[in-house]
Nucleic acid binder design. Structure first.
Lengths: 339, 339
DNA sequence: TTGTACGCGTTATCAA
DNA sequence: TTGATAACGCGTACAA
């Protein structure tokens, strides 16, 4: 079987020939510059006629650009698909990047080996900038990026954010406070929290908001810490909570998936929701509407987060970045039946 | 703010200078060829010392390759994230592509405008090959790809598959037959199907399998057709079925999401599962374990599908494709409590 | 086994 | 306003 030959593509040279001008002039209509009206129309016709499309490789070579932005997800492979927001964030980022004719290359950093590989990639100049999702504290990748002075934006800030790098996110503290207050307003007295992912800003901030809302009534023994934002950790956390305080009548779960797991445990324990105990989640993911009863939760604009992150990087790449940096997007609370 | 200057990168020239040889020799150790042991070690040391990484743009320019494979999803944006398999398929494909040092560029084709844009992209030689997911009949993109003789692989075959293009998929007919038989074996007499996405091979084949399993007992009036594989269509389909045949005691839902919707309607109608009616799904997605009761369903190896698809394209790109073409992967049935 | 020189398709610089 | 020409970094004949 013969190696398929790449399709023949028209070049600037061909366009110039077809229009009866030099390559320089063609280039000026492509990339702006002084050019006479007659030449312009002739060239535009020629471009359409020969079906010219610029060759990215050649262009990038001379411009010393890759026209690519890295999307770094610092997350175990398995969790990538479970995360209800990451997909929408990627989609949002990809939207504005592709409009700006940039390629989004997604790199998941799971193991140490990944760190090395991605490090080489970044150093190699394969991307003009990076969007970093769910970075943890003291991340080697973060250090590398500041070292390289690579244009970048965080989605959610790592605890040790070097503020030369902007971020886009939501107010986790405020959102958590608001939704916890709802629990208080509906008369719950013994309120616990299943706190997940405390090594991330989102996790830590949600706990902070919970504590703020409770004020004097905050009781550390009613906080069950679990590592991840998922269903099975919701199950574990709820068991702990129920064990410590059988009279519990309110629960703030750090995510909808966690809440769904908690709900299952409550059902097994014979507690009714929202009768015996009220429960609220976070994310407004598809979980929230599937549970019985549906969850009251915090909606975060994941797609917009992605879009804003992409814009922030592109601004830096283009060198047209004024003073204003990080962006905090608004959340909204969705009331359903669980509390 | 100054435009961030791209990091200075070492070139073959630098390596040659550092090793005291010519660029040609350096090239030979990079891309294979005769080279003396002494020269090789000297050059390898030099490469490490100056931190040389090949420049993709330059390499692609001269090789006339893009080192990119398009991942085309012919699906509405909104459904992309809902589909339980597509994410895993992408991950699987990306895995083998990145090992082969190829970029995966994902292109979602939703509207007619997308078709045009993607068409330009393919014609422009921006990808060396393509993986196409959920193509429908008479797709203009498919036609373009055969025209261009672009190396490609389908995931699931479109009804009008031009057999010059290989595909990787599962045996939807056989899997559907098997799981429907289970319903029969457990003594169900009036079995209906909620058939979704009949304009796709997967949807049509599952209906075929259902019909085969039932044989003489097949009753067309017990098939509710719905357009999409999602929860809300499961709700609609189940209502139709219950309306047409109140004595129904078995249901094959075309996907787990559909089954979940159907389950909700059954609950509202006061039917117990699996007591009054047995129900089975398809996909073994996260839905299957979240429903009450958990679903019996067909597991399909989504990740492997992606891996195989990528390998099939790469083989064609490299021109090292023997005779064997399409691949059918095995499914397995997962028995839970719903039937 | 090694070195030299040309071409890949663009952009950018400089004269004209 | 336009045209010629030199990079950009690499692969590859061809000659040595």
């Amino acid at each position: 079987m013969p190696k398929p030959s790449p399709p023949k593509r028209a070049t600037v040279h061909d366009v110039a020939a077809a229009a009866g001008v030099s390559r320089g002039t063609v280039n000026r209509v492509l990339n702006g510059g002084y050019v006479s009206a007659t030449a312009r129309t002739a060239i535009e016709a020629a471009i359409a006629k020969v079906g010219y499309v610029p060759n990215t490789a050649a262009r990038n070579l001379v411009r010393r650009r890759s026209q690519a932005i890295g999307f770094l997800a610092m997350e175990p492979h398995s969790l990538l698909l479970e995360d209800p927001n990451i997909g929408a964030i990627m989609l949002g980022a990809n939207e504005v990047l592709s409009v700006a004719d940039h390629q989004m290359v997604s790199l998941v950093v799971d193991s140490y080996r990944d760190t090395e590989r991605v490090g080489r990639y970044l150093r190699g100049g394969f991307v003009d900038g990076a969007i970093i999702v769910s970075a943890r504290a003291h991340d080697p990748i973060t250090r590398l990026i500041t070292q390289l002075r690579l244009p970048a934006t965080f989605v959610g800030h790592p605890p040790d954010l070097h503020h030369s790098i902007p971020f886009v996110g939501i107010d986790n503290v405020g959102s958590a406070r608001t939704i916890t207050q709802r629990l208080l307003q509906t008369g719950r007295r013994r309120i616990g929290m299943i706190a997940a992912a405390l090594d991330r800003d989102s996790g830590a901030d949600r706990l902070t908001g919970f504590r703020q809302a409770l004020g004097d009534r905050f009781d550390p023994s009613l906080v069950a810490e679990v590592p991840l934002y998922d269903y099975s950790n919701g199950v574990k956390g709820m068991r702990v909570l129920l064990d410590r305080e059988p009279l519990l009548d309110g629960v703030f779960a750090a995510s909808d998936a966690v809440a769904a797991g908690a709900l299952e445990v409550l059902r097994e324990a014979g507690r009714t929701v929202p009768g015996d105990v009220g429960i609220v989640g976070f994310d407004n993911s598809s979980w929230a509407m599937r549970t019985q009863p549906p969850l009251s939760t915090v909606h975060q604009p994941a797609r917009e987060i992605g879009q804003n992150a992409a814009e922030l990087v592109l601004n830096q790449v283009r060198g047209t970045e004024p003073a204003a940096r990080s962006i905090l997007l608004d959340t909204s609370v969705v009331w359903r039946d669980s509390a």
